[in-house]
Structure formats: structure tokens, C-alpha cells
Nucleic acid binder design. Sequence first.
DNA 1: CAGTGGTCTAGACCACGGC
DNA 2: CCGTGGTCTAGACCACTGG
Lengths: 242, 242
Amino acid sequence: MQPLYHRIAEDMIERIKGGELKPGDMLPSESQLSAEYSTSKMTVRQGLSLLVRAGYLRSVPGKGNYVEHPRYDLLTMHFDEMDIVGDYPQGVKLLEATIVAPDPLVQDKLGLTEKDKVIVLKRLLYTETQLAAYDIKYMPYIKGKPLIEKEIQYIPFARMVAKHGELFSVKNEVTILAAAADQEVAPMLETSPGSPLLVIEQKLLSAEQKPIGWGKTYCLSDCMQLHAVSAQFIQDKKLLNL
Amino acid sequence: MQPLYHRIAEDMIERIKGGELKPGDMLPSESQLSAEYSTSKMTVRQGLSLLVRAGYLRSVPGKGNYVEHPRYDLLTMHFDEMDIVGDYPQGVKLLEATIVAPDPLVQDKLGLTEKDKVIVLKRLLYTETQLAAYDIKYMPYIKGKPLIEKEIQYIPFARMVAKHGELFSVKNEVTILAAAADQEVAPMLETSPGSPLLVIEQKLLSAEQKPIGWGKTYCLSDCMQLHAVSAQFIQDKKLLNL
DNA sequence: CAGTGGTCTAGACCACGGC
DNA sequence: CCGTGGTCTAGACCACTGG
């Protein structure tokens, strides 16, 4: 037996999806719904709050609860570099792990000067069957915090940076684009200059918006694609078990 | 003055981000927190529920509330075809809007037979300054539901399909990949075969998981990039105003 | 002003987990 | 068995919007 507040939420979804309530319409007031379901206002609100959080409703204080237009344009995606590798144990080949002075581009991306030091990681990522991506990452060097080789091999960059800087949470900003392989990257990927690559640029920020990591992953186009789904449906599963 | 439940949530976030509570740790019980804040259990729960929904906590019935590891790998992205065009009024050029029998690929993608009819849209999308993308969309033909030319020009495919089929919500599945321009697409984009493209494949499903739209957008690589941010931070803004 | 959503109380009973 | 979170009540008062 599902709780009453859950049933209320499902009923409302039904009224909305069935067309009885259209975007812009106002729901019955919370006190009316309390009466309809012979329950208290708090229970009604608990049900409606699910729909508000899932984006089906908007609550307007002093007015009412209104049906929202669904958002088709907000997508949820899963990504980290290790997705490429999957469970394949030998899928990461570390080419370089050094501490250097940042070049001007990296200085800019990480907000550093040429006197600072950055850790550079260069890696090749393999699927089970073939070479798939060339990955370069930069992070500010913190004295006395060595990186462990196993971590470099197996944990995603965002987690690595969080651990290295002892941060609880990290903001991950990702840019996705296509580009032709250039003279530097092509030989690494054993392909010819000009062949299409999926490039994923990652920028990591601390809670204070300070840059704490930056890098790019150059993926062979036939080995890598990203999948995204309307956020709405992620919410539905989580909140409503629909 | 912010409500008490909000203050409770922020206090907990502080305890977590400050390192006082680490992932895996159990929070004080709800009754303990009620006492700490001299409030009722319901108010405490209202505060904690924010953190549960934002992914900071997991509630385990019979045991307690536990601090979760933050997710770096869930990203939220904004995308529809009209993002490319923006507010530029002449940014869409309709090449073709016809009703045809679907070819085998489209039959497969939309779950149709060769006896069915599909609407095909082919469009060129321009930024303010230049040609940016070639877009092909397919949707099952529904008798007596004409498409209005202005809609074809200006509303995103997902919204168009929802309206055409009189559906409240539509599931949007997007695949992102890089590819080389082929013989068919290259001339449309006034580029040479082999040049890198960002390809965005869109599949639309009804609430019953029936395919109701499919298509691809071929974007010139220097005109288009996608941006995504850790979902965590979207939630933070919405739920906590941090 | 009356009606709305937003917050909050001080209890209650339940299902669950672990001892 | 007791302590935990999950549900729910029947009220209260507030801030807000509209007429």
C-alpha cells in the first residue's frame, strides 16, 4: 500500500497527462484537496511538493499551484573519462605524470602564474578492443600531497582533484565539441591529422569558484558517444516510480 | 529571515563541507536534531529532505541519515536545435517538408512499416553570421494534423512533436558524437567531405515508450559546442540558494 | 477583505533494523 | 526490545495576491 501523499501526486499527474489539467491551469486549492482526500493540508502539500520538484507544477504564494509546461531542453548525462575504459583493467596507459611550470593557456585556465607548479597527466585510454582516447589533465601542485599511481589509473579526474585538494564537492563544467585531429594529437591516437574527434573539455572549480583542474579528452569518433535524457524522466523515476 | 528548516539544511551542509561530517557518517537522529533546534520533527525532516533531494544525504529507514559521496559524473545540459539559431529571426531555412514512406532506417527508428507515412523536415540552421548546421527530422504522419510553417521555423522538434501528437510530455533521448562529413551532408554545409562535424541524434518517445520522433543535427564543428555542469550545482541553486 | 500557499507544532502510529 | 526514519493529523499563524 503506497502512502496517501504518493497517491495524491499520481492522481494529479494523471489529471495532467490525461489532459484534464493543461499547462497554465490552476489546481484545486490545497484546502479543497485536503477535503477531497479527507486528509490534512500537510499531506496534500507533501504530495504536491513531489510534482513541484519534478517540474510539473509551480507554486505561487498567495495564488495557487499551476501546471507547468514540461521542459524538453534540460538533459541529464553521465560522464567521466573512465566510462570509456569501463571495467577493462588494463585500459589506461599513463604516458606522463610530471610537475611543471604552466604554459600561458594553462595559466589562464587555472588562474595561475608561471611561477606556480602544475601536475600534468597524459594518458591513453583503451576500450577492451582498441585505443579510444588521448587525455591531458592539469591540476595545481599542492606540496606534500602525492598522487598514487593506482589512482591515476582508475579514478576519474574530478574525484582525483577532490581528494588531492581535500574538498568535499567539486563543480564540474564540461564542454563538448568536434574537431579535427591536429599534428600533436593524431600520432597519439594512431590516426591521421584531420580525422574527426569528439573533444571533451573539463573544468573543475572549488565551492569558492576557484579553478582546481582543467583538461581535455580527445576521443576517436567511432569509439565514443555520449548519451543524455530529458531530466524530467530522471526525476519521474526517482520521485514517483512511474 | 529565512525559515528554520532552511537554516537547518544550511547548517548540515556546512558541517559536511567543513569536514565535520564525512561521506558515510550518520547524522544526529531526527529527534536529536529536533531537540538541538527546539523544533518539531516535521521541521527537521523538511530541512533534511532538501539535502536528500540534492544528493547530499541518503535516508535509510530504521537506521539513520547518512552523508553521501557527491556525484561528479551526473551532468545537466541544455539543448535544443534552436539554441544554435538563438534569437536570429532568419536563422532557419526550410529545405523540405514532405510526407513520404519511411526508408528502412527510419522504419526501424520509429517502429513503422513501409506502408506508414512519415513527415520529413530538412532544414539549414544559421547563426547570426554563418551557416551552422544541417538538420533532418522524421515524425509519424497523423491525419488531419497539419504542421504550421511558423512552427517548423521556430519551435524545437520536441515541442513540435508533442503538439502534433497532443501529448503532454515527451521523453527526449539524445546521442552526441563526432563524425566526418559524408557525400550527402558536406555540400549542404558548404564544406568538404571529411571535415569534422558534431552530430546530435535525437529520439523522442511518448510516455508509453513509443517512438514518436527521430532525427539528426549535423553541426559544423566551429559553430557549435555543448555545455554541461554537474547536476549537484543545479540542485544547490534551486534548493538552497547557496 | 477573504483566499491562497508557506511555515510550524506537538503529538500519534507504523515499518524497519539491530541487539 | 528500543531507536530509527516514514507517514499523518488537526490545528495554528504568517505573507502574499486579488478584489
